[in-house]
Design a protein around this nucleic acid. Structure first.
Lengths: 363, 363
DNA sequence: GCCAGGGTTTACAACGATGGAAACGACCGG
DNA sequence: CCGGTCGTTTCCATCGTTGTAAACCCTGGC
């Protein structure tokens, strides 16, 4: 209940503060009986090191921040869980920042308003621009970007190959004989060529072209945000506009869930009338009715890789290598929303891309 | 990129370290021109205070921990989002701990292995016992418990009235004419009388009794954990045992989602054959097919209250009051899984309980 | 011209922990 | 018996910031 300092323990044990410190830190040269006596007093008094002081001294805190748009999005929630678990293995703890995808909030994070409180940053940017990371006020700590990427590789980056993932999803629909494949989730406002929406759209186009199908702009449904609500609204708009899709490729599972819901409202059979596929493989999709086909990124791998890369840069012993750009693996998981009731969660395609664990990765 | 200390700024500006500190902190007695000159240098050099040092000095960190079982559970994910937002308004940031519901991990958190790194703790305990909070090694920081409660009120506690919530859910099913109402989510292993499962079961029994219905043990489906998987499994077991429920009261939405999925597998119509209701009002349920009826706790209110109570205890100016036990409000939200397609998300019942915002609540 | 009184600035000492070097003692070999 | 060595312990300085109190400077009144 009371705070106990090294000094208090030292006084009671009749030794110097440093000796107690040595015992606490398992320093080698401490006489066995001294160690035992000090340890006894430590336990008795319930000593806990003051991490603030330790951090000041050491110049590191053992805390990393995870900045992402929104925990309400199940993909980010699941990813956060994985990051927290991965960080644990490196002795790091995670501080969560919700940026709401707002540029100001993202800038704040990057400009280090948590200065010297965090050792590193894992961030899933939405609105940041390249120069934001290089400006004079910018980060002085290692950063790993997830998903979205921008500018030349100034920092580490982990993501699946979005174009390939989207292509795989679309190709799956094509293979099922669908010809009017709509996309849900375009973000035409965003000029960002590296944006997730842009890349996934690119994959869709590529798959269509490969299959000899036309790219029909009327089959492109834009959304203001990647959530269930807007997924449903976008599909409603699509249908009301008279586009008659026989399949929907949604840019993420959350949009797809919204789509499934709207199709149910309209009495449209999935996959009979319209097949649906998403990306992310959130747990929700595995239990949806019908179960949702999806492209499953290796979330645990992404988290592990991101944290490992950060940990490596935090380690003063390891020489600094240039920023890396890691492609995480993904896997097409076909379920009822494309295969129908006969589906038994077949892994149809396995992504070739592997996650090369960075050197020094724990486990 | 380089670290800049007050000293560096002071040297360049030709003033003392303290004067720079005064400028940074907006101390009143600084000559306007001095202030201007120092400010210029501050901006030029991109000074950022070292929070570790500040914390050491101030004895507070501005960080609180949120300890909960698992972010994969959407209820906790949504709650975390709310807590982070609420904390922000008090100038606090949130560090997330996943305990997996394990006693050891929860103990670790409570015994302050983040000592002096966090100012307070919001925790959703699963396995902790009363004495764990009072033991000698226990917390020396303010704690607010969410949901589960135990022992005499040694710390603050925020939760809905679980018995009343369960009673409302069950009563809703009764009002629809259901007579064989099963519960999904019992945890008979847990002797804890204050446990969530125990309380919700109590509410179920109470509603049945009030309606003159029997409490049939064969309609009680236990689960090892509150997730979709086990929700589905429990309902499967229930059906296979020959219990013929016409309604399911699931102890949370995640179990209910699993239940819906299994009922779909078996071709059982919801709510025609079996009505389903849960507790939590996770976003997922609002888009499920059919949409899930539920008891909606005031999540934002719970988060705000918990953080406000913590903030109040952190404020040395406010006198310390005895631990409080706050009842958060809840609301019955009837949707398709009980009302059928005609449902348009009617709020049938509004909980009487209000959330009395603690004194000093922000906003 | 001196002193009081105000605003402004500075020197100093913490906050609690730890790295490094110095001090201490015991043991050993010459 | 002394110097050297090694293991153990202590002293000192330091991490970057800020509260306290004292020093400083200027103005205005007597």
């Amino acid at each position: 209940m009371v705070r106990v300092r090294l000094q208090d323990v030292a006084a009671r044990a009749g030794v110097s503060v440093k000796t107690v410190s040595n015992v606490v830190n398992g320093y080698r040269h401490v006489a066995p009986d001294t160690r035992a006596r000090v340890q006894l007093v430590l336990d008795e008094m319930g000593y806990r090191p003051n991490l603030a002081a330790r951090n000041l001294r050491a110049g590191r805190t053992g805390v990393i921040a995870l900045a992402l748009p929104d925990l309400d999005n199940p993909y980010f929630a699941e990813l956060t869980g994985s990051v927290v678990r991965a960080a644990e293995k490196h002795g790091l703890t995670v501080l969560v920042d919700q940026t709401e995808g707002l540029r100001d909030r993202e800038l704040e994070v990057v400009e280090g308003f948590r200065n010297h409180l965090i050792d590193g940053l894992v961030m899933s940017p939405m609105a940041l621009r390249a120069k934001d990371l290089t400006g004079r006020a910018a980060v002085d700590i290692p950063v790993v970007l997830l998903g979205e990427k921008f500018g030349a590789g100034a920092v580490d980056h982990v993501a699946i190959d979005n174009v390939a993932a989207a292509e795989a999803a679309t190709a799956h629909l094509v293979a099922l004989g669908r010809t009017r494949i709509a996309v849900v989730g375009d973000q035409p406002g965003s000029r960002r060529r590296s944006g997730v929406a842009h890349l996934r759209r690119q994959g869709w186009e590529r798959a269509l072209t490969a299959a000899g199908l036309d790219v029909d702009e009327r089959l492109v449904a834009p959304v203001p945000a990647f959530d269930r609500q807007h997924g449903a609204a976008a599909v409603a708009a699509l249908l009301d506009d008279g586009a008659r899709p026989d399949a929907l490729f949604c840019f993420n599972d959350t949009l797809a869930i919204g789509a499934l819901r709207l199709l149910a409202d309209r009495g449209i059979d999935v996959p009979g009338d319209v097949a649906v596929i998403g990306i992310d493989d959130v747990a929700e999709g595995r239990f949806a009715v019908p179960t949702l086909s999806t492209v499953a990124p290796d979330k645990a791998g992404i988290a592990r890789t991101a944290v490992a890369m950060l940990a490596e840069r935090l380690d003063p012993a390891s020489e600094q290598r240039p920023p890396r750009d890691v492609r995480a693996g993904f896997e097409l998981v076909a379920r009822e929303s494309t295969l129908g009731r006969s589906a038994s969660a077949v892994s149809a395609v396995r992504a070739a891309a592997a996650v090369p664990p960075p050197r020094g990765t724990a486990r």
